[in-house]
């Protein structure tokens, strides 16, 4: 085996097919996208090179800055639900309580349902006439709190963020529980003998030891909510009047509806840069040494 791995050529033979596919489907499109973002083009008529004008226009575009703000709110909402909350739930289920496997499954379920189905279900929940929420408010006598949830420009985005929080909390919880299960039980036994409380155990054993996983998880959360698309497309389509527009939905709109592909590609590049920044950021926040048990 070592003989094979020692040979650079044989490594290349094994890596090359995957790399070629990766290059064709990822690297080349990214490069082409960056090139298109400097053009003013509908990909049919002759295109015009405009330099960074698309980017300058983007930051003057109120809809885009609104979408950016919405994306940041989405990241914050997801981070709250998918790190502290998921950790809390995970930690509770990690203790040997009755039915923890059952609850793991229940929490995990929403994330295996496809986004479109989740979106449609929640549109019914939020429906102003027969939706669950308004009916519930009516029953407990709080009619004054009833809203046309998804059509209210101040509320619609938060309604969607709540759904995202709900949908993926189980997914991240399972990742974190898996990380916790890797920690040898002897650490906890030793801590218990020394009289450490559950909180101290979490703070001093669990958290530091699952940090590398949390780093990966944070990257998943942030990039996931930056490029979020399906729920918004299904529930509001970016409306009312762009109030729930995200960068990805606006990119789609500018590309496939107004045929401003250059402009749309520029949004894509900004999305790419933001995703890369988020990786650097989470690497910095969760910096840690490699641990081996």
């Amino acid at each position: 085996m070592n003989k094979v791995l020692g040979n650079k050529k044989s490594i290349a033979v094994f890596v090359l097919p995957a790399f070629i596919i990766y290059a064709i489907f990822v690297l080349v499109p990214i490069g082409y996208n960056i090139y298109v973002s400097f053009l003013q083009t509908d990909l049919m008529s002759p295109s015009k090179f405009v330099g960074v004008k698309n980017y300058i226009n983007l930051f003057k575009d109120k809809t885009f800055t609104g979408a950016l703000r919405n994306n940041i709110l989405m990241v914050i909402g997801s981070l709250i639900a998918h790190l502290p909350l998921a950790l809390l739930f995970g930690n509770i289920l990690f203790q040997k309580i009755k039915g923890s496997h059952f609850f793991q499954t229940v929490f995990f379920l929403p994330s295996v349902i496809c986004g479109v189905a989740v979106g449609l279900t929640w549109t019914f929940v939020y429906n102003s006439e027969f939706g669950l929420i308004n009916k519930f408010l009516e029953i407990i006598g709080l009619e004054s709190l009833q809203h046309v949830w998804l059509a209210d420009k101040n509320l619609a985005l938060f309604c969607i963020i709540v759904v995202v929080m709900w949908q993926f909390v189980g997914y991240h919880m399972v990742i974190q529980i898996a990380a916790m299960k890797n920690i040898p039980l002897s650490y906890y036994e030793a801590a218990e003998i020394d009289g450490a409380s559950k909180w101290v155990q979490f703070k001093s054993i669990t958290f530091p030891l699952i940090k590398p996983i949390l780093k990966v998880d944070a990257v998943l959360i942030i990039t996931g909510s930056l490029k979020y698309y399906d729920l918004v497309a299904v529930m509001t389509g970016g409306g009312p009047n762009h109030a729930t527009e995200l960068m990805s939905t606006y990119m789609f709109y500018q590309g496939f509806r107004t045929l401003k592909y250059g402009y749309s590609a520029a949004i894509g590049v900004i999305l790419l840069i933001l995703c890369m920044c988020s990786v650097l950021l989470s690497n910095f926040v969760f910096r840690t040494e490699q641990v081996e048990f």
Partner: peptide, 20 residues
């Protein structure tokens, strides 16, 4: 006007109905 001013006109009308 297609999906530029045309669609934005539509959105503007909804915004007004929404209280703007």
């Amino acid at each position: 006007f297609g999906a530029g001013e045309g669609v934005e006109f539509n959105n503007t009308c909804v915004a007004v109905l929404g209280g703007e």
